[in-house]
Design a protein around this nucleic acid. Sequence first.
DNA 1: ATGGGCTTGCAACTCAGTTGCATTCGAACT
DNA 2: AGTTCGAATGCAACTGAGTTGCAAGCCCAT
Lengths: 144, 144
Amino acid sequence: MCKHCDYTQMLEVRGVDPTPLREEVLRSVGEEQRPLAAAEIMAAVQDQMSINKVTLYRILDLLVDKGLVKRLSAGDRAFRYGMGETRHHPDHPHFVCSACGVMECLGPHLLPSNVKDIQSKGNRVVKNVELRFEGICESCLQND
Amino acid sequence: MCKHCDYTQMLEVRGVDPTPLREEVLRSVGEEQRPLAAAEIMAAVQDQMSINKVTLYRILDLLVDKGLVKRLSAGDRAFRYGMGETRHHPDHPHFVCSACGVMECLGPHLLPSNVKDIQSKGNRVVKNVELRFEGICESCLQND
DNA sequence: ATGGGCTTGCAACTCAGTTGCATTCGAACT
DNA sequence: AGTTCGAATGCAACTGAGTTGCAAGCCCAT
């Protein structure tokens, strides 16, 4: 996705042992311009090396836990996994096509800044905000 | 949820035969102040009459299709079902507690109005917007 | 070399939701 | 009345994404 990302270093900085599988999973997520389902990441990694389904899910859990990867709801039964926030990749909303199921990233400016107002409202702690648009993507509109 | 809702009539207006089960499912969703998971709706309906799991899912599909009910992602594996938009119930964001999994409704004012700007951006059609906050709810904060 | 702690793999499981097909029921048509 | 048709419901078995339990492999420090 990005020239700023040294995946090995990103892992080390978060105190995660940079094993080949972990690096490859993070790279597969990072090199994509859109969040992927676990099955897609699986296929991408399998392209380079062999990996077990359980290992993949455990690595994804770990990366999500360390904030390197963000787990996103797509409105269907499978999560999507995209790069976590960094200085170079601010938080942003997503668009999901209900025809083909592809999730796309939208510009960060579409995520209203006043959205964290809820933090002060009521006695709750807000840790995360997710904004998702659903509809039909450009490519599906053409091939209808 | 509401004095404005005549569930039988709501079904009829949308051209849906108001069977006892459909009325009871819609009522179970409508009388709650927060969106429920299918299992919770199941329990609520079972309280009044016997219903099969498959029938419940089919009724929910139907109600979602007719716009009477809205299917919401909670960030976990189970959808939540809340009342669809009406004049009396405008679209609004939700809060999900990652500790107890309960989804709460937030005020419609927290859903930024400029959020539909994306409609014009790019060649896509946006049909739905979902804004979800995640964190720890008031009740879980107290019992920690 | 050996013991303990990560990392990975394999099989079996869970859970929410779905599919296929049988049954029931009520309206409609001889 | 008998038949037929379609819509609504039920039951069992399935699906797909993710999880759990446990064994095996690997590495490093005693």
